[in-house]
């Protein structure tokens, strides 16, 4: 059960007040008519599923009804930052090395693409009881 800092209400609130709304920073092509079917299909259907740093959009549905973004580690479920719509994250997979030194956990490589990476071998060793 997440504890989420709402950047508009300016305090931590219970997950039940929020609703996840998918990957953050998706860009709708400015002129849809000019993009190819493939590009439009990518925009419509393809999403990242990284192990590690991920940027997600959430909405404070039962609170202030504002959408905002979360940088979350998908391995530890730790929320590293929340920021308002229109702002950029300060923690990304690219600068994760720096953040790791600062004590922020990231996944191996912190990759951000879909499917292409081999499964982390450690996944096979450990299963919960």
């Amino acid at each position: 059960m997440f504890h989420i800092f709402c950047p508009y209400c300016q305090e931590y609130r219970e997950e039940e007040e929020f609703h996840p709304s998918g990957q953050a920073h998706l860009v709708r092509p400015a002129d849809p008519a000019s993009v190819s079917d493939d590009e439009w299909g990518d925009y419509l259907f393809f999403r990242d599923n990284p192990r590690g740093i991920h940027h997600e959009m959430w909405v404070h549905r039962l609170g202030c009804r504002k959408f905002f973004n979360i940088t979350r580690d998908t391995t530890s479920y730790e929320i590293l930052e929340t920021y308002r719509m229109g702002e950029q994250p300060s923690i990304t997979a690219a600068n994760a090395e720096v953040r790791r030194e600062q004590g922020v956990q990231t996944a191996d490589g912190g990759w951000q693409t879909v499917g292409a990476q081999p499964e982390n071998s450690r996944l096979n060793e450990e299963t919960p009881s």
Binding site: V59, R65, F67, M85
Partner: peptide, 13 residues
């Protein structure tokens, strides 16, 4: 309502 807010807040503020 959430759909309208989504587009207004994220795409066409």
């Amino acid at each position: 309502l959430e759909w309208l807010e989504l587009w207004h807040q994220t795409e066409w503020p």
